[in-house]
Simulated scan of single mutants.
Amino acid sequence: MQVPELPETGAFRLGRAPAAETAHERVYRHISYMLMAGFFQPGETISLRQLSSALHVSEMPVRNALNRLIAESAIELLPNRQTRIPTLDRGQFDELTRVRLMLETDIAADAYRRATRGDIDELEAINAKLVEAIGRGETQKSIDCNQRFHLSFYAIAGRPLTFSLITNVWLRAGAFMHAVLRSDLITWRASYHDALIRALRLKNLDACVQAIRDDIIETHKEIVGLPAGVIFPAEA
């Protein structure tokens, strides 16, 4: 198993731990990042031994991290004690989308008010990498840049409680969303990111919040508009 490096800037700066961070906390953050960035597939079982080996740590911090993620409903514990990445049905996906709309449009307003020119430049640089990755068909890099763009923007708001709620939603939906994006069933664009950056530079709060809203809603529309049985189980 190959695992990505844990980024220490951008999307994770709000939750960045001090130098004395424990192995348990770092492993938890690393696995959380992997979930949000779509490195696991829906329904995939997680091998404690393989994950420990890939992260170059003992099984204890990995087991503790998995137990914590089970408590947060980010992964599932099966009757045979194996852990598995959850799948989502249509109702769960709709609910997570509604929660995203409430949390992310709310925090966007505060991020808008606190954003500096340097913050906006950083978001623009991340988005440029996203557009480049999409153009080259580099799906995993696109996924990573998209996550960094959104969470880096929300981190500007300086609201750690709301930020943690948002990341929990991304934990639950990450594998599902990125499995869809990898499938080429929908067309992935970054146009709403452009609209967000433009709104920040023009100091237009309403347009800023609307860009986040449109990004979430349009992605939801594309996914639920796919033929029955392609993503969600066909209704009886």
Rank of each mutant, 00 (worst) to 15 (best):
E235W: 02
S164A: 11
A234P: 02
T162S: 04
I126F: 02
A190F: 09
A19L: 03
A71K: 15
E138C: 07
A236W: 05
F163E: 00
R16W: 01
L181T: 09
L130Q: 01
V27F: 06
N146W: 02
E218F: 11
S142G: 05
D184S: 12
L35G: 08
G137R: 04
E95L: 15
E44F: 10
R29E: 05
A19T: 05
I31A: 01
H193I: 10
R198C: 10
N67F: 13
Q92T: 14
S191A: 15
P233L: 03
D194G: 12
F163R: 01
L77T: 13
D119A: 09
S32D: 03
L35S: 12
I186R: 02
E122C: 04
G10I: 00
V99F: 01
L123Y: 05
D206Y: 09
P227K: 02
K141D: 07
G118I: 05
L202S: 15
S52D: 07
R68N: 10
S47Y: 12
G118C: 06
V230E: 03
G225H: 04
N204E: 14
Q140S: 05
F163T: 00
I197F: 13
A234L: 03
A195V: 07
L35D: 09
T105H: 02
D119L: 15
S52Y: 06
I217A: 11
R136W: 03
V57R: 12
D110E: 10
F40C: 13
L165I: 01
S152W: 00
N80Q: 08
